[in-house]
């Protein structure tokens, strides 16, 4: 990053290739689609590039990058909220959404202990469980799982104390455990 600060374009390209997949993975699991994730990642790199002159190596580069990512994700969610966009799933595209009986059937089906989950279905359930968490829990969980970041680093990236991260992750994992109970029996 210090080379980037001095205007080394090749160093910046290296930084992009090092972080692009990691960031897109996180954004993809936060916002739900690849295109939006790539747009956010590109926006993030642009911010890093514009802020390069003011960069001070006080924290780990990855922590700094993921701090920007956390802010960006939060801003993106807020602006999305302002636009009040409602994205319906294909199964909810009817004028009245999912009928209660259908929902009951689906819920019952997923509760059957003998049910065999194929990988795709499991993926879907895990994704839905993740989506049920609030944004901060999701971000903390993804940083921990995907990036292997310590509570202290997550705290630095999300501007929280390690104790707050501990509590955030504990609640997130308890919540996931409840939602995914049928899959882990």
């Amino acid at each position: 990053m210090l080379r980037v600060k001095e205007g080394d374009e090749a160093a910046f390209a290296k930084l992009v290739t090092t972080y692009q997949d990691r960031l897109i993975s996180i954004f993809r699991n936060l916002v739900g689609d690849q295109e939006a994730a790539e747009d956010l990642t590109q926006d993030l790199f642009l911010r890093i590039y514009r802020a390069r002159h003011g960069y001070e190596p006080n924290a780990k580069l990855s922590t700094w990058v993921f701090r920007i990512a956390a802010n960006l994700a939060s801003n993106s969610r807020r602006s999305k909220g302002r636009r009040k966009e409602v994205q319906l799933k294909s199964s909810e595209s009817g004028p009245l959404g999912v009928r209660p009986a259908e929902k009951l059937l689906a819920d019952k089906s997923s509760l059957m202990p003998s049910r065999q989950f194929d990988r795709q279905e499991m993926q879907k359930l895990v994704r839905e469980a993740l989506e049920s968490l609030n944004e901060r829990q999701r971000m903390a969980l993804l940083l921990h799982k995907f990036e292997g970041m310590s509570y202290a680093d997550i705290g630095e990236a999300m501007e929280l104390s390690p104790q707050a991260v501990k509590s955030l992750l504990s609640r997130a994992r308890e919540s996931l455990r409840t939602r995914l109970e049928n899959m882990i029996r």
Binding site: F45, V126, R127, K145, R173, R177
Partner: peptide, 29 residues
């Protein structure tokens, strides 16, 4: 259970950047 739940997160997609992502990003920059 907590440990197994955490392992289930391995099922989450690890997305990859599209082929021209780096190029597009550098051009934007």
């Amino acid at each position: 259970h907590l440990a197994r739940t955490y392992d289930l997160l391995d099922l989450l997609p690890r997305a990859k950047a599209s082929e021209d992502f780096t190029e597009r990003t550098m051009a934007t920059v």
